[in-house]
Design a protein around this nucleic acid. Structure first.
Length: 1042
RNA sequence: ACGCGCAUAGCUCAGUUGGUUAGAGCGCAUCGCUGAUAACGAUGAGGUCCCAGGUUCAAAUCCUGGUGCGCGUACCA
């Protein structure tokens, strides 16, 4: 491999593509599974996406999480199967077909039949699978697409039947009429989640209507925004505790009742005279005349009377609510509670009045509003008409307003198992944790029965057969059971095959026929843990061993979706949670803080991003953000670019540095691996162990957002401390022990880093791993970084004292640079002396071990140490608040003042004796913090932990040495420009001013050594290839190859 | 409307159980470094920690009430 060339043109994107090929050709994913197949399983559930859309940023976040965790646990020695899943059924698919055919599903079924309709659906379900596979693979997610599960597979559907059968046996299924959100365009009931997904602010007509009391020449004023429900009115409702007034509108010649609190509102346009006051309770039981004749006979069933309920308020309207139990859940409830069973719902599936409503039969309800209002006006029953702005649910598919109507539906009695669900939730570890008790916990507590039937075509048929004579019901929960009863053995369970299967049972009259409804597709995705394995028909042991799953990860929107349905079914059947750990990711917003929207074009397509910056950068960006703890994140492409810059490039550069020199020296880990005792080597190795320890702690808690920053810090330490300080060791001639130790340390760090990073940045980790592997002449290392064991910390190599010491050294270097900046002396100009000041002798000794690094970094001739801080530094003290606050409580204020006022002498005494008494209170070490700041008039600097003094006096000698360094710099630049290789030796001709020449002569040996120059000749004439200005001096040089 | 979350530098975000000098990166300015560097390093400017109360010796942090944003829930007739 031509490494030289490859490095010059290294591209993360190209490298990733090569690695994708490598994984594919060598079947690394498969091998990782084979390698772990006897290990304890780690069960991961993949939530199935709808296959109708393309993957977006939200899927990428989830996909990254769904890749990192399984990779990590695989490397930890677990067997992690990853099956992709597809949600195939449901409205989105049917809606696509309806659009294509240009008609509703009902019409389509009538014209072409169930079979042909389902064929259409089946045909488009997998339309985008190749795009999904492409994007998911590109981001580096390893998932089994071949062995995927589809909710339309016969095995899957049969397990769904089994799940339903379980609920049926436990008595959790019932048929009821409930008032539900209904889409008149789709002709179907919507689930709660669907109904809530599209609220819009709309203007609806708001009318105040009079109902004539039977026993008095007065009316009741009721207010409604749905005039079309008035023909179905069966009762009126007041609040027992609200005061009502009887008023007279002389102008309109009418007397009526309304809430006192609403009087003000109605008095604005009308002159009203109050005749008397009653409570809602007083009104209860009084009868009124039906507004319309259609259901007048229901008066026999106690309709057309006034009821009481607390849900009536006086925030709007008249405080008297019109009740149409067919169209309102509260309405229905109030009447049920009063024991009135009557309910009417004279509206068909298309939202049109039935023949019962003779005057408006066939009219779409919203269209009927106007005519009804007109009719009421003519009859003198309309008091006021206005419009009302409120948010109203719309059908998310057809964008038409939903109506609420009562419909026969099949329900899961969720309320009966609420406690089980709450108990199951207690066993789940949520990231972020507030969802457990918050959003999800609250949702469970308020859970309501779940309508699972849909009057649809493309779905899993609900396996209930009803006897057409006796109304006896049988739930069938397997293909086998159906065969036993009917003699028909089905290989596909869709409606075209099941609808016509009927049977009778010997000794019973009548024929059993299947109901026509299919399942809500959420029931199917909630059945996924069982159905993907075709449990219990197959894989019984496998399921039992791995349930509940260890881990799932989905977006915050699934709180009410998949997280919920999994929990409902699992609690109902097994009284357990379905999963133990869940990471909930937040919503990805566009850069401008709004939702990402295709029409707004306010984001870059995922594929383009990966084409520009690579998948690793994208992955790292996503999982370092708040997205992995359920927070939203404004997605900025620049953030992805920054990941390249702040993490991947330094990592790459440190590797490239290593490789450049190791190749030059022919260093081979198999032959030249040495553990030396260099202090920075020990430090880096110690740092590495600490890193591994922290990673494993955070990963155990599924807190990914803490893992990657720790890795970044390590990369930073590696490049800006370890390599920077040790460059000289790699430049040394030959392969001495110390140099081998340096190589070995760097090799170990890079290798372990690549393995540690593998779950997070799987591509670049692989790249580094392969490169390092290639350098090893006798490597029996695994073929891929992803087949390695995840490194664990060797705690015996952790030396926290040393880690601290290096921190302090870095502080000293920073202070030195700060000082040089202040006095404007470049690092190239050497300074004579640095004094490190600290009272602690042991610390000074520790720092002295790092003296050479300090000298080099700050370009200092000598370092001295001084324990007598008072010479340079002022002290000031502050109480250690956390410690003292608890002890002193209210007295804290007083002592804070005393402590801050301590004199230098008292502080010195305190330091010497280790304690001090103030106003009767004894303070010991740790109670008082001592801070340091440089004393004025000194060249000292302090960061309150450590202090330095830098001798900034310059002598001509020092200045000339500085000049020599400048010359080296110019020669190196020239070498590079002239195209010399790193190792090539040169001869130099120099033309310069006298003082500069003196500097060069004085430091000739040093200059030659640094620049690989064999000889320097001086000239005073002619002109040369390279010309420079150094301060006020001019320098011209020419280079020739030797 | 209710529930949950969020609000910190021009921008994107850290900020442990309350603890007194509130941090990082980007951007900006200045200086420097560069034979691992698509780079980088240092220094500096930049803050009403959304607002108002409260608890406390002490509040960015806890409580209450607002405001704004997001998500979720909701037939308020």
């Amino acid at each position: 491999m031509d490494n030289e060339n490859q490095n010059e043109n290294f591209s993360f994107v190209e490298s990733e593509k090569k690695i994708l090929d490598f994984w594919k050709d060598q079947e690394i994913f498969k091998k990782s599974l084979e390698q772990t197949k006897d290990c304890p399983p780690y069960i991961f559930y993949d939530g199935p996406p709808f296959a109708t859309g393309l993957p977006h940023h939200g899927h990428l976040v989830a996909s990254t999480l769904k890749d990192i965790i399984p990779r990590y646990f695989t490397m930890k020695g677990r067997y992690v199967e990853r099956r992709f899943g597809w949600d195939c059924h449901g409205l989105p698919i049917e809606h696509e077909i309806d659009k294509k055919l240009g008609m509703s599903a009902q019409d389509a079924v009538e014209k072409i039949g169930v079979k042909a309709y389902n064929e259409e659906c089946r045909g488009i379900v997998q339309r985008f699978t190749s795009e999904w596979e492409k994007t998911i693979s590109r981001i580096g997610r390893w998932v089994d697409f071949e062995n995927d599960y589809k909710t339309m597979d016969t095995d899957f559907m049969e397990s769904v039947w089994w799940v339903f059968g379980q609920l049926w046996e436990k008595g959790l299924i019932y048929q009821g009429t409930k008032v539900v959100p209904f889409s008149t365009a789709l002709g179907t009931v919507l689930s709660n989640f669907e109904a809530g997904s599209n609220y819009q602010d709309v203007q609806d007509p708001a009318v105040t209507i009079f109902f004539k009391l039977k026993d008095e020449d007065a009316y009741l004023a009721a207010w409604t925004t749905t005039p079309w429900t008035l023909p179905s009115n069966l009762c009126l409702c007041t609040n027992a505790d609200i005061k009502y007034v009887k008023v007279r509108d002389e102008e309109k010649q009418i007397t009526f009742y309304m809430a006192e609190a609403r009087l003000e509102h109605y008095s604005k346009k009308n002159t009203l005279e109050v005749l008397g006051t009653v409570t809602g309770a007083d009104l209860k039981g009084r009868q009124y005349e039906p507004l319309f004749p259609y259901f007048a006979d229901l008066a026999e069933e106690n309709c057309f009377q006034i009821l009481n309920d607390d849900y009536v308020t006086t925030e709007s309207g008249t405080g008297i609510v019109h009740i149409a139990p067919g169209f309102g859940e509260d309405d229905n409830r109030v009447m049920q509670e009063e024991g009135i069973k009557a309910s009417v719902c004279p509206v068909d599936d298309a939202g049109k009045f039935t023949n019962k409503i003779t005057d408006y039969a066939g009219v779409y309800v919203k269209d009927a509003d106007k005519e009804i209002i007109k009719d009421l006006k003519e009859r003198g029953r309309l008091y006021e008409r206005s419009s009302y702005l409120h948010s109203y649910p719309f059908c998310p598919r057809s964008k038409t307003p939903l109506i609420y109507k009562s419909i026969p539906s099949w329900y899961v009695n969720v309320e009966a198992i609420k406690e089980k669900m709450v108990a199951a939730n207690k066993q789940i570890h949520w990231v972020p944790d507030h969802i457990k008790e918050g959003r999800f916990g609250k949702w469970l507590e308020g859970a309501r029965d779940w309508a699972i039937s849909r009057n649809r075509v493309w779905g899993t048929p609900i396996p209930i057969w009803i006897n057409d004579t006796t109304d006896k019901r049988i739930c069938i929960s397997s293909i086998e059971q159906l065969k036993e009863l009917s003699g028909v053995e089905l290989s596909d369970l869709h409606r075209e095959n099941t609808d016509d299967v009927s049977f009778s049972i010997p000794g019973e009259e009548g024929t059993y026929k299947r109901i026509t409804e299919v399942f809500d597709c959420w029931f199917e995705s909630g059945s996924m843990p069982y159905a993907q394995l075709h449990y219990p028909f197959e894989n019984k042991e496998m399921f039992d061993a791995g349930y509940p799953a260890e881990f799932i990860a989905e977006g915050l929107d699934q709180t009410r979706g998949w997280f919920y349905t999994l929990t409902v079914l699992s609690a109902a059947i097994f009284d357990k949670p379905a999963f133990k750990n869940v990471i909930v990711n937040g919503l990805v917003l566009a850069k401008d803080g709004r939702k990402m929207s295709k029409s707004e074009r306010n984001f870059t397509a995922p594929d383009n991003l990966m084409e520009e910056f690579g998948a690793d950068a994208l992955r790292l960006y996503l999982i370092t953000s708040g997205l992995v703890k359920g927070e939203e994140q404004k997605f900025d492409d620049k953030g992805v670019k920054d990941m390249v810059r702040t993490a991947l490039l330094p990592w790459f550069n440190s590797f490239k540095f290593f490789k450049t020199y190791a190749d030059l020296d022919g260093w081979d880990p198999a032959k030249h691996y040495v553990e030396g005792d260099n202090i920075t080597d020990n430090w880096l190795i110690s740092n590495l162990q600490t890193l591994k320890k922290n990673i494993s702690k955070e990963m155990d808690a599924y807190q990914l957002y803490n893992v990657v920053p720790a890795l970044f810090t390590f990369i930073e330490d590696l490049t800006n401390t370890y390599i920077r300080l040790n460059r000289g060791r790699f430049w040394a001639e030959g392969l001495e022990a110390d140099k081998c130790a340096a190589y070995s340390t760097l090799y170990t760090a890079l290798q372990e880093l690549s393995i540690s990073m593998a779950p997070f940045a799987p591509f670049f980790s692989e790249f580094i791993y392969q490169e390092l592997k290639e350098m090893n002449s006798s490597s029996d290392a695994p073929e891929s970084v992803h087949l390695c064991t995840y490194p664990t910390a060797d705690e015996s190599k952790i030396n926290s004292l040393l880690e601290d010491a290096v921190d302090r050294m870095n502080q000293i270097i920073l202070l030195g640079r700060q000082k040089r900046n202040q006095v404007k002396i470049k690092v190239k100009t050497p300074l004579q002396e640095l004094t490190v000041i600290h009272k602690d002798e042991a610390l000074l000794k520790e720092i002295a071990r790092l003296e050479n690094y300090i000298k080099t970094e700050l370009n200092i001739k000598s370092v001295s140490y001084d324990q007598d801080e008072a010479k340079y530094i002022n002290f000031f003290t502050k109480p250690n608040f956390p410690a003292l606050g608890k002890r002193l409580g209210k007295q804290m204020g007083k002592f804070t003042g005393l402590i801050k006022k301590l004199s230098e002498a008292e502080i010195a005494k305190f330091e010497r004796q280790g304690s001090i008494e103030l106003d009767g209170e004894v303070f010991t070490q740790g109670d008082i913090d001592i801070f340091r700041e440089a004393r004025e008039g000194h060249d000292a600097l302090s960061n309150s932990l450590i202090s330095i003094e830098l001798n900034c006096e310059l002598s001509p000698e020092l200045l000339r040495e500085g000049l020599a360094r400048e010359v080296i710099n110019r020669i190196q630049r020239s070498r590079k420009d002239a195209g010399f290789n790193v190792g090539e030796r040169i001869a130099l001709t120099v033309k310069s001013d006298d003082n500069l020449q003196l500097a060069i002569e004085e430091h000739q040996e040093y200059i030659c050594g640094e620049t690989l120059t064999n000889s320097i000749s001086f000239s005073s004439e002619g002109s040369y290839d390279f010309e420079f200005k150094i301060d006020d001096y001019s320098l011209e040089i020419a280079l020739t190859r030797v």
